[in-house]
Design a protein around this nucleic acid. Structure first.
Lengths: 73, 73
DNA sequence: ATAAAAAGAGCATTATATGGCACTATTGTG
DNA sequence: CACAATAGTGCCATATAATGCTCTTTTTAT
C-alpha cells in the first residue's frame, strides 16, 4: 500500500508541530495505536472514518477538491 | 455509517455534471458498483484507496487541510 | 555513549469493506 | 401513464482493515 505520501506527510508534520506522539494521538482520536503506526509508516489503507478521526484531533479535515491541472504532466 | 455528507455531495454532483452513471464510474475507476452505490447512498465507510480511485476519475483529489475555525459554536 | 522515549514490525484475531447477484425503488422521458 | 434507465438494498462470500501484544529499531536527550 503506497501512494498516500502527501496525506501522510501532512499528518506527521502536523502531529510534530503540535508535539503529539503517536501514542497520544491514538488515545485522543480513538484510533488504535497500531493502526496509526501502520498508516504513518506508509503501510495500510485506512478507512475514511479512521482518517477523519485522526485529522480531527489535529485540527485538520479530509476534503475532496478539483485536481490541479498541470499542463505538461 | 454517516458523516460523509460533504464528500458524498461533491462526488455525486461532480458525477452528474460529467453525466457519468454510477455504473460507468464503477467501471472507469475499478471500484465495484456495489461499493460505489453504498458510498453514495451514505452507507459505507470506504477506504482511502477506494475514495481516491473514485475521485481520480472525476478529476478530483482527496486532501487534508486545516479546519476552518468558526468562532462561535 | 547510554538510557529512555518514540516509532516500526511480526503474528493472530475480530470487525468490516469489497463486490457479485438478484431484486426493488426512484427518476426521467416519450 | 408506461417503459427504460439509473439508483438503492438484502444476502452472502471473500479480502482486508483495525487492534492488541510483544519485540526490534530508531530517535532524542543527557
Amino acid at each position: 500500500m503506497l501512494h498516500f505520501e502527501g496525506l501522510i506527510r501532512i499528518i506527521k508534520e502536523r502531529r510534530e508541530v503540535l508535539q503529539v506522539t503517536q501514542e497520544t494521538l491514538a488515545e485522543l482520536s480513538g484510533v488504535g495505536l497500531r493502526t496509526l503506526k501502520q498508516f504513518e509508516s506508509g503501510k495500510g489503507n485506512p478507512t475514511l472514518l479512521t482518517l477523519q478521526k485522526i485529522a480531527d484531533v489535529l485540527g485538520l479535515e479530509v476534503g475532496i477538491n478539483l485536481k490541479k491541472v498541470s499542463l505538461n504532466k
